[in-house]
């Protein structure tokens, strides 16, 4: 039990919170056919973080978050600029920007040998969920002991704030979000500000991606933005049930993925553990696969005849 508290409770909670918040936003990304914005933004967190490290010389998380946030906004602005002024197709503009910025990030890393201070490409991609150890979590009593609680890894609090922010955003803007996602013109005509809502959604995606990035790496973020929401989309026609289902799938992926990665090899008699982030992403893809094969609403509807 104390093992679980010390080694697994925090990473699992972090994974669950991140998966749920990313999946929540993912519902709207999938509906708006903007899934790949999440992909782009989680890639460019790397150059942002490296640049902020080179500028400030510290790995303080506030600086890193700021750097990643700036680079996310910069990316969105660049994509829009290239798309509008250069008349380049949307996905191609995205591809130009995020690959170049990611390349810049990798180059800055290798050039300055930042690799020695616990910041490398692998870490950026698949994170280090397993390192979130709660050293004071030796017994159940620690759960109510303020001294032990203050020793909780700081990522937990940060991720919790991010989750609260995401939920607050979706609750506050739910009407406009739904309207803007389904029918932007109608939304504009009833004053729901679809452009503003779209921009805010991108900002929230950036916030979620950055907070998650530090704890679990980019790959889980991309998977969670897309897979649970996409799977839920194939299960139901109602948005409310879709959101609920996506949350369920996110939690299931997080818990099962973490347990399988941490304890699965042990059950097979191997003394190793696998990447939890990778496993969670894989499982969410597995859920999507199931939905693609058996989801009751998997087929495209014929357009309604008018």
């Amino acid at each position: 039990m104390s093992d679980f508290l010390m080694f697994s409770l925090v990473p699992m909670t972090v994974a669950i919170v991140i998966c749920m918040s990313c999946a929540l936003l993912g519902n709207f990304l999938v509906l708006r056919r903007q899934s790949l914005i999440g992909d782009a933004i989680s890639h460019v967190a790397l150059p942002g973080i490296v640049a902020s490290f080179l500028l400030t010389g510290t790995l303080a998380s506030s600086a890193m978050m700021l750097g990643a946030g700036v680079s996310a906004l910069f990316t969105v602005a660049m994509i829009e600029l290239i798309r509008r002024l250069g008349r380049v197709e949307n996905s191609a503009a995205m591809g130009v920007v995020f690959t170049s910025l990611f390349a810049l990030g990798v180059l800055m890393l290798e050039w300055n040998e930042v690799g020695t201070v616990h910041l490398d490409v692998e870490h950026a991609l698949y994170g280090n969920l397993e390192s979130l150890i709660w050293f004071e979590g030796t017994s159940l009593a620690a759960l109510v002991d303020p001294r032990a609680l203050s020793d909780l890894p700081p990522q937990l609090a940060r991720v919790a704030w991010m989750g609260a922010l995401v939920v607050a955003f979706v609750v506050a803007f739910r009407r406009s979000l739904v309207l803007a996602s389904f029918d932007a013109d109608f939304a504009a005509s009833v004053g729901a500000r679809p452009t503003l809502v779209g921009l805010l959604l991108v900002v929230m995606v950036a916030v979620a991606a950055i907070a998650a990035f530090e704890a679990v790496g980019a790959i889980i973020v991309i998977a969670m933005f897309i897979c649970p929401a996409a799977a839920a989309r194939l299960m139901t026609d109602r948005l409310a049930s879709q959101v609920a289902l996506s949350q369920l799938i996110a939690v299931a992926s997080a818990v099962l993925g973490y347990v399988l990665a941490g304890y699965g090899p042990g059950w097979m008699g191997l003394g190793v553990s696998l990447s939890a982030a990778g496993m969670i992403a894989t499982l969410s893809g597995g859920f999507l696969l199931l939905a693609c094969l058996f989801g009751p609403h998997r087929h495209r509807r014929e357009a309604l005849s008018t």
Partner: peptide, 21 residues
């Protein structure tokens, strides 16, 4: 399925990469 190509790309990309990791 009814999912768009963007969702398909993102899902395949992240799932396969996760498995690779």
């Amino acid at each position: 399925t009814r999912l768009g190509e963007d969702a398909a790309i993102g899902a395949v990309l992240s799932t396969f990469f996760g498995l690779g990791v």
